[in-house]
C-alpha cells in the first residue's frame, strides 16, 4: 500500500466529550501507535481540553462552537500546514472503533475518501430510530445517485481522507451539522474525487449527550435540499493553505 509511508493525522472533532475523550485517545494510541492525534475542541464548555491534553493529544481550541464541519476544516487546514498527506476522522464519543481504522486506510490506496459505513450489510444491528433510519437511507440514495458507487451511510463521521480530499476540504468544507457530512460528499464527487465505503460496526456512544435532537436534525435535513438542487459553484474562495516552514 502506497500510503503506508505517509504520516497520518487522526482528527477528532469534540464538543463537550470530556467523559469519553480520554478513553478514545487511549484506544487510538493503542491501535494507531504511529499516528499523530489532533483533538479539535469545538468551543467545549466542559473539561474536554484539559482532559485531552492530559491524555497526550495536541489540542486545537476553537474560540466558539462552529459545528463539526468547522472543527473538521480546522483539522484539515492543520494537516496541510504541517505536511500530513492522510487524515482519519473519528468521533470523540467512542462510537467508532479505531481498531477498524486500518480497513479504511487500506482502501485509500484506490480512493480519495473512504467512509466507514453502517448498514453496509444486512446483519448490521446498529440501533437507530425508524424515522432516522429512513431519512439516512434517503440521503444515502440521493448521494449515491451523484456518485459512481453505492453508499449506505452518508452521515457517518468515521472517514479517511487522502491527499486530494485533504487539499480540497482544507479550502471548502461545509459547516452545518449533517450538511457537513452529506454536502462534503457532493462537493467531493463534483470535483471528481473517488469516494468508497467499507462496512464497519459502530458502537452506541459511550457517554455524554448527542449534540442534536431529532427535531433539530429534521431542520438540518431540510437545509440540505438546496445542496442537492443547486450544483453551486464553490462560494467564498479561501486562499489555499500552504505548508508552514
Amino acid at each position: 500500500m502506497a500510503l503506508d509511508d505517509d504520516r497520518l493525522l487522526v482528527i477528532i472533532p469534540c464538543y463537550n466529550e470530556s467523559e469519553t475523550i480520554g478513553a478514545v485517545l487511549h484506544e487510538v494510541r493503542a491501535c494507531l501507535p504511529n499516528a499523530d492525534v489532533l483533538v479539535v475542541d469545538d468551543g467545549s464548555t466542559d473539561h474536554t481540553r484539559p482532559v485531552a491534553i492530559a491524555a497526550g493529544a495536541r489540542v486545537v481550541t476553537l474560540p466558539f462552537n462552529l459545528g463539526v464541519g468547522g472543527a473538521l476544516r480546522t483539522g484539515f487546514r492543520y494537516a496541510i500546514r504541517h505536511g500530513y498527506r492522510v487524515a482519519l476522522q473519528i468521533d470523540g464519543d467512542g462510537q467508532h472503533d479505531p481498531a477498524t481504522a486500518h480497513t479504511l486506510l487500506a482502501e485509500l490506496s484506490g480512493a480519495d475518501l473512504v467512509i466507514g459505513a453502517r448498514f453496509a450489510d444486512e446483519e448490521d444491528d446498529y440501533e437507530v430510530g425508524l424515522v432516522r433510519r429512513l431519512v439516512m437511507r434517503a440521503l444515502a440514495r440521493s448521494v449515491s445517485r451523484h456518485s459512481d458507487t453505492t453508499l449506505t451511510d452518508v452521515t457517518s463521521g468515521f472517514r479517511a481522507f487522502g491527499p486530494r480530499a485533504l487539499s480540497l476540504f482544507a479550502a471548502h468544507y461545509p459547516a452545518e451539522y449533517l450538511g457537513d457530512t452529506v454536502e462534503a460528499l457532493l462537493i467531493a464527487t463534483r470535483h471528481g474525487l473517488k469516494v468508497r465505503q467499507v462496512g464497519v460496526a459502530m458502537r452506541p456512544r459511550q457517554g455524554g449527550a448527542a449534540s442534536q435532537t431529532s427535531a433539530r436534525s429534521a431542520i438540518h435535513v431540510l437545509r440540505l435540499v438546496p445542496a442537492f438542487l443547486v450544483p453551486a459553484r464553490l462560494k467564498h474562495e479561501l486562499p489555499a493553505v500552504e505548508e508552514s516552514p
Binding site: V60, T61, P63, T74, H236
Partner: peptide, 20 residues
C-alpha cells in the same frame, strides 16, 4: 452569509495559530 463565512475562517485559523 459572508460575515459568517469570514468569522468561521478566522476562528479556525486563530485556533491553529494559538496551538502553534
Amino acid at each position: 452569509s459572508t460575515l459568517t463565512y469570514r468569522t468561521r475562517a478566522l476562528a479556525e485559523d486563530v485556533a491553529i495559530l494559538r496551538l502553534e
